[in-house]
């Protein structure tokens, strides 16, 4: 309490009173001039301090904004490059397919059929057929402010690959997620707040399309771990899910199927 009383009742520096008393005792006036060199210099210093403090705050804000805008520009620019190259790859693949068909025209139907078969098996060819579409979307509305840590209503990469595994298990023959065809070399990863499929970021809603037997796939998926998981996602965490059977789904071909190093066993040099 002494400390608080001291602070509240005697806010003026006591040395002012002390030096005034000393001057009075010496027969001088109790106060000195306000306009001395010392006071003026200190006043200039204080003004400088105020201006510098205000200036340093003002100057930092635009710099941060500029850096942010630059980063956003870089992101959109790189994304455009990726889009453009993906389109180029798709065009080249089509070109290759055309050339293959042309050069194989004389080689017989069996070879063409085999090539098509391989394209479908590896996922490099676009395919269509009956199947199932499972869609997952983040819980609508703002994130729960009460929730600590991770937002429970957000779809995670784990959710996506449990559904994908459930679909494979239920006899799916080809799967793509938001237009990214899954092949033997397709990872489903989590990077920061984004889900990456085939090393490409995808954004919600996540639409997982699978081609498979129309009579068995929906039923088997509903019974599988994946189907139960989808149901628990919507029941427990408010994630918007839907499972729709469709007669005709078309999936794009994968853009990245080349294998350079792996060789058939026993065929080594």
């Amino acid at each position: 309490m002494t400390l608080i009383n001291e602070m509240l009742t005697r806010p003026l520096d006591p040395s002012y009173a002390a030096s005034a008393a000393r001057r009075v005792a010496a027969g001088e006036p109790p106060h000195t001039s306000v306009g001395t060199v010392l006071v003026t210099l200190t006043a200039i210093l204080i003004g400088l301090l105020l201006a510098v403090a205000a200036g340093s705050v003002r100057r930092d804000a635009p710099t941060a904004q500029g850096v942010r805008a630059e980063l956003i520009d870089q992101i959109t620019e790189r994304r455009d490059v990726v889009e453009e190259r993906s389109r180029a790859i798709a065009a080249r693949q089509q070109e290759i397919a055309g050339l293959e068909a042309a050069s194989l025209a004389g080689a017989g139907a069996s070879l063409t059929a085999r090539l098509q078969r391989l394209g479908i098996d590896t996922g490099s060819s676009a395919v269509e057929g009956p199947g199932l579409i499972v869609s997952l979307a983040d819980r609508p509305g703002p994130a729960d402010p009460e929730a600590t840590g991770v937002d429970q209503g957000k779809v995670l990469s784990r959710d996506v690959f449990i559904v994908v595994n459930g679909l494979w298990q239920s006899g799916a023959e080809a799967i793509s997620i938001n237009g990214q065809r899954l092949t033997v070399r397709s990872p489903i990863r989590f990077a920061g707040a984004a889900i990456l499929v085939n090393f490409r970021p995808i954004s919600p809603p996540y639409e997982i399309s699978a081609i498979g037997d129309p009579d068995q796939l929906p039923e088997l998926f509903a019974q599988s771990v994946g189907g139960a998981y989808v149901k628990s996602l919507s029941d427990n965490f408010g994630i918007v899910t839907s499972v729709t059977a469709k007669d005709d789904i078309s999936l794009p071909g994968a853009t990245r199927v080349s294998i350079d190093r792996a060789r058939p066993l026993g065929n080594g040099s």
């Binding site: 003026l12 520096d13 040395s15 002012y16 001057r23 106060h31 306000v34 010392l38 204080i46």
Partner: peptide, 24 residues
């Protein structure tokens, strides 16, 4: 704080330039 203290000291009639500088 130093500036307002000084202004108050001037009004109280006990301003001292050395005390002001040292307090600042």
């Amino acid at each position: 704080d130093a500036v307002f203290g000084a202004v108050r000291a001037v009004l109280d009639g006990i301003f001292d330039d050395k005390v002001f500088v040292v307090s600042f």
